[in-house]
Amino acid sequence: MINYLKESTFAVKEVVTDAWVVTRDNYVSIATLCFLIFLTVSTSTFMAFFMGELHIGIRILMSLIFIMSYCIVELCLIKYIIRLLDGGNPDIKIIETLPTRQEIVRFLIGTVYFGASIFLVGVLLMPVLYLLDLVLNFAVREGWINNFTDAGKTIVNVAVAIAALSIFFTFIRIVFFPFFIIDKHCSPFESLKLSLATTRGNFVKLLFIFVGLVVVQALVFGFFYVVVMTGFRLINFFFDYDINQYISFIVVVFSSFVIVPFTTAFFAVAYRKIMHEYKGDEHPDILHNIV
Results as ranks from 00 to 15, higher is better:
Leu84Ala: 03
Ala268His: 00
Phe35Glu: 11
Asn202Ala: 03
Leu33Lys: 08
Val21Ala: 09
Met51Ser: 06
Ile58Lys: 07
Tyr70Gly: 05
Ile235Gly: 06
Phe176Thr: 00
Val269Cys: 01
Phe38Lys: 08
Leu234Ala: 13
Ile145Glu: 05
Phe257Thr: 01
Phe114Trp: 11
Phe179Arg: 01
Ala270Glu: 01
Phe249Ala: 13
Asp91Gly: 03
Leu206Met: 13
Pro178Ser: 09
Glu96Lys: 13
Ala48Cys: 09
Gly87Ile: 05
Arg59Ala: 03
Ala139Thr: 05
Ile65Met: 13
Asp242Ala: 07
Thr97Leu: 06
Phe267Pro: 00
Phe66Pro: 00
Arg59Leu: 04
Val220Ile: 15
Val175Tyr: 00
Phe203Arg: 07
Met229Lys: 14
Phe46Gln: 10
Thr23His: 04
Ala151Lys: 14
Phe254Gly: 00
Phe50His: 12
Gly115Arg: 09
Thr230Val: 07
Phe224Cys: 10
Ala161Asn: 06
Gly152Pro: 00
Met275Glu: 13
Ile145Pro: 00
Val156Gln: 09
Val73Thr: 08
Thr9Val: 05
Asn147Val: 04
His55Pro: 00
Leu165Gly: 13
Gly143Tyr: 01
Tyr278Ser: 04
Ile56Lys: 15
Gly201Pro: 07
Leu85Tyr: 01
Phe210Asp: 04
Leu125Met: 04
Gly280Ala: 10
Ala139Met: 15
Met51Asp: 05
Tyr225Val: 07
Pro188Asp: 08
Leu125Lys: 07
Asp86Tyr: 05
Ile181Ser: 04
Val211Arg: 02
Gly231Phe: 12
Leu206Pro: 00
Ile243Glu: 06
Phe238Tyr: 15
Ile290Glu: 09
Val128Phe: 12
Thr154His: 06
Phe189Thr: 11
Phe169His: 14
His185Val: 04
Phe50Ile: 06
Leu75Met: 14
Ile235Pro: 02
Val253Asp: 03
Thr170Gly: 06
His276Asp: 09
Leu36Ile: 09
Pro127Ile: 03
Asn289Phe: 04
Val214Glu: 03
Gly110Lys: 02
Ile290Phe: 12
Glu190Cys: 03
Pro188Phe: 04
Gly122Ile: 12
Phe46Trp: 14
Val135Gly: 07
Leu234Gln: 11
Gly143Ala: 01
Arg106Met: 01
Ile145Leu: 09
Pro188Gly: 05
Ile94Gln: 02
Ile145Ala: 03
Val220Gly: 01
Val228Phe: 12
Ile247Pro: 01
Val220Phe: 05
Thr230Lys: 08
Tyr113Ala: 11
Leu54Arg: 12
Phe176Ala: 00
Gln245Tyr: 13
Met126Cys: 10
Glu277Ala: 10
Phe232Leu: 15
Ile250Met: 15
Pro178Gln: 10
